[in-house]
Nucleic acid binder design. Structure first.
Lengths: 146, 146
DNA sequence: CCTGAAAGCTAGCCCGC
DNA sequence: GCGGGCTAGCTTTCAGG
């Protein structure tokens, strides 16, 4: 398995705060050489511990100010893949979580406004044999290190 | 407001795929000079459209293999801030969403195992005047660009 | 918005422990 | 296996046009 030591965790924490930090800056923080830091980061990418780097965006400033979670319930005949496949093809869907118990899935969506939300929910409702949905409107959110 | 044009959106999409992409690579993609790309990215950071850059991590490989959403319900006397403050001080909490209606909040947690999950839920339950919780265990997840 | 040059960074070596 | 130091080439940065 992946052998991630204390120094690796510190590097991950530094990259979590700022994914564009330079190797030389991190080297100074953890007390290693630039080459050693690069080797550790490369190794974590190779091992799949680091899956990538991304930009964090304020969606409200881009006009996508409405966020919601929709709980999905569907019949026993509907496979999990049907739901996930449909949901992932809807661009407004940010994430899909399959759940043990009730509901069967939780879908995180981000939309421009309420009519837009309604159309997305309608799309989800038509996926597979959905027996019911319940949508939780997000009023405010806090994300670690957002 | 923020004036984000088509080129800016293409830059955001490129950075979303790979937050460590170089300005020169993006310049080639959008057909601008390196300096022009840097100025646009700097401007978006300044405007708050870009809030930061971060690394994406496979938490399962780090031994945090259990993920769940906990719905919280609390009394009218409990302020939203009480819940959010408590939740954000719990390191296992990834995100807190305050919700319109029922439940009052949705908390995304990531833990090592089930006993660990139980202790986190107990902590949340003691926050403010929580009247009830319902935890949705995540079996599988898909995240856009995860 | 582009060009150009200096400073800084990255990526790949070799070497020692 | 781990680390450090080096260098060539690229990237970033900040003038100026």
């Amino acid at each position: 398995m992946s052998d991630v030591d204390e120094t690796d965790h510190r590097l991950l924490a530094l990259l979590h705060e700022d994914g564009r930090r330079t190797y030389s800056e991190m080297a100074g923080e953890v007390g290693l050489s630039v080459a050693a830091v690069k080797r550790r980061v490369d190794r974590m990418r190779e091992a799949g511990v680091i899956t990538g780097f991304t930009v964090q965006v304020d969606h409200v400033k881009l006009g996508w100010g409405v966020e919601a979670f929709t709980e999905l319930r569907y019949t026993g005949r509907t496979g999990v893949n049907d739901i996930v496949t449909t949901a992932t093809t809807v661009p407004e869907v940010q994430a899909v979580y399959t759940i043990a118990g009730d509901p069967d899935a939780l879908v995180h969506v981000r939309v421009r406004d309420l009519p837009h939300l309604q159309s997305v929910i309608d799309t989800l409702r038509r996926a597979g044999t959905v027996t019911g949905t319940k949508t939780l409107m997000v009023l405010g959110s806090w994300t670690r290190e957002g």
